[in-house]
Design a protein around this nucleic acid. Structure first.
Lengths: 129, 129, 129, 129
DNA sequence: GTGGTCTAGACCACG
DNA sequence: GTGGTCTAGACCACC
């Protein structure tokens, strides 16, 4: 797998796993019906405890992204790709709204905010090129 | 005081207090040399635990925004206003960067992101008018 | 064969096979002395692991429904039909008891329960017509 | 608390806790806004591992029955009572349907089934008196 | 081999 | 005191 865990980041490890699986599904790296790596395998690969991976997978099942196949493992649910895409956009929109509201609460002027955003947007786009 | 605590918001209460004090200083609502309300008074007013207020004030002292005056309480430090203004911009820039990096990690296309941002920016600006 | 496996149903696959064989015997679809399909044939037909079918057949032998015939395979035991009929009624009675006890534990009122049961009983009878 | 765990019952312990909390909320034994016993307290009382209780509470939060109050504990969410009542009826109806469908699949005659159900219903009602 | 459950004990942030 | 996270190791049923 191509996941990566950032332990210094405050975000709980199991949530990082959840997010990265969802992103992989949204991006098509994990196709519907495909078996995801086993709990033990992924835990070995990421050097984290199997229980932590299991918890992430449990969450993903509750979210309808994965489904269990008895004795075989966990597979990506049908329709999960569209769901993950929608969720991704929704999540990012929320985060953006949150920041903007915060900026407004701090009485940052609208043009200052716009300048900040444009600068960072340009920066991130250059990275992608 | 004019602070307001949002318990349903995941943000720790003491950090909400810290932020709001800093914003008040940045915006000039709290002037350098001015005494802030006592721990007990503020805790009563916001209906939160005195320990929580004390913790926020401890943080504000560590950040150099407040300083203790023997027998009087805590006052806004000299030069705190400029510091809070800088911090505010820096904080918001960080948050924006964070969101953009996250969006990039989720492989959201650059133009999709820009569209999202522009939409939300317009929305927040309309609110301000 | 006319069996059907439901993977999304929590019930273990091998138990589904056991149950369906017993129902077939009870209903007369499988007569005493008749040879059941081989493990390999049935596993191919149901698209399940041969080990799973073998386990189901082992269970059915232990229950006295099937018996092995050297070099021939497995046949339905004499007297299995009556046994399967009795077992069927007993099993369903158990399930009903279980549901009712659960309903009682949840403090559902007796008349509410009776109304629920009558409604569903009417529904299932209409389906059969 | 008045909960009771049955270890010999195949049902996972954490699910038993979830169910009993929901039943308590549905029945009004736990009112909205009320704090439920702490993880440690309940785990001591039921003689089970705190993690197991925590897992049940996590599930109850995901189901919208409990909500966390920072540093204080977990309280019953507003509107949880109605939700738990609906869920209870829906759950039992599902179970009843399941049994009836199973009975039909086993080709049990409709009048045999009705006789079975009436007998067990009478039995359970006598217990309640 | 697979996931699922449970225990035990540790550390953290928060009020 | 509270819940939340993580680790470690055990046992189970199922395929």
């Amino acid at each position: 797998m191509f996941f990566q865990i950032d332990f210094s980041n405050g975000l709980p490890v199991y949530q990082q796993v959840v997010r990265q699986v969802k992103f992989a599904v949204a991006g098509g790296a994990l196709q519907a019906g495909e078996l995801v790596p086993s709990v033990r395998e992924l835990s070995r690969e990421l050097a984290i405890n199997p229980n932590t991976v299991a918890r992430a997978f449990r969450q993903l099942q509750a979210d309808g992204v994965l489904e269990s196949v008895r004795g075989m493992g966990l597979q990506v649910a049908a329709g999960a790709q569209q769901q993950c895409r929608d969720e991704r956009v929704k999540l990012i929109r929320q985060r953006i709204q949150q920041v903007f509201v915060e900026a407004r609460q701090s009485r940052l002027a609208a043009d200052e905010l716009r300048a900040l955003v444009d600068g960072e947007l340009a920066a991130i786009e250059q990275l992608e090129v």
